[in-house]
């Protein structure tokens, strides 16, 4: 079937039904027009993923491999996968990043609790597109274990790296600090032209997007700090 994901027409060649249901919100109305990308999985990729993720169904394994296939092809279209959670607030997108277990889900949950209108674009694996007016973050069917996400997009206006701490603090990161942290959260293709495109996209992302380090607990004060730094707005308790 053909899907519209991150502004691209993608034909997904799945064998297992799992992915049909998984991607159904993204089904393209026009199934017969040309596609930008064909996502498919080889037997050896399936086998390798089974080794890495035992105890999962073949449909699930295939589904993970299909997203990797898609994401390894998107750099040619000025797009890349970034492992993060993206919230949209009053028309602007903000990405929250951190190693697994540093509290991305917790912190974004706090935004939803204390701020009335944020929308979760994607809780885990959004696609970013470079445009003339900066980067856009797109929701995708792949949205992490919580399943948080929307078939929507927002201009990416800030990055917020999270670390757990007893006392809340926030500071702006320099481009070189962001560079070190960001590489852990992107998918680097092995294929040369895709790798070059990814490096160039990453550089532009770093140079164009303000980034902060939030050291935080799980209090409302943590939300105030990230909200004020990212949006430039005043937080009202």
């Amino acid at each position: 079937m053909v899907y519209e994901i991150a502004g691209l027409r993608v034909r997904i060649e799945n064998k297992y039904e799992y992915t049909d249901a998984f991607c159904k919100e993204y089904l393209a109305k026009e199934q017969n027009l040309p596609v930008d990308i064909i996502a498919k999985v080889t037997d050896s990729e399936m086998e390798a993923e089974k080794q890495a993720s035992p105890n999962f169904s073949d449909g699930y394994i295939e589904n993970i491999c299909l997203y990797r296939s898609l994401c390894l092809q998107i750099p040619a279209f000025k797009r890349m996968l970034m492992h993060c959670a993206v919230l949209e607030y009053e028309g602007k997108g903000y990405a929250f990043l951190g190693k697994s277990g540093t509290g991305k889900s917790t912190h974004t949950k706090l935004w939803k609790r204390y701020l009335k209108t944020p929308t979760m674009i994607n809780g885990d694996k959004p696609i970013l597109e470079e445009t003339e007016n900066g980067f856009i973050a797109y929701g995708t069917p792949w949205r992490g274990k919580e399943g948080w996400g929307t078939n929507a997009s927002a201009p990416l206006c800030g990055l917020c790296f999270l670390e757990q701490a007893k006392e809340n603090s926030i500071r702006k990161l320099t481009p070189s600090e962001v560079s070190g942290r960001l590489f852990q959260q992107i998918l680097m293709p092995n294929e040369e032209s895709a790798a070059i495109a990814t490096l160039e996209l990453t550089d532009k992302l770093i140079m164009q997007t303000p980034a902060y380090l939030l050291r935080c607990d799980i209090s409302e004060e943590a939300v105030k700090l990230s909200f004020e730094a990212l949006t430039g707005l005043k937080y009202h308790y």
């Binding site: 481009p175 590489f183 680097m188 040369e192 160039e200």
Partner: peptide, 17 residues
């Protein structure tokens, strides 16, 4: 098979192929 690029002001080398 190594690519050197400046990313965020840092010199980064990644292997390809």
């Amino acid at each position: 098979g190594f690519i050197l690029r400046v990313v965020g002001g840092e010199n980064v080398v990644v292997p390809v192929g």
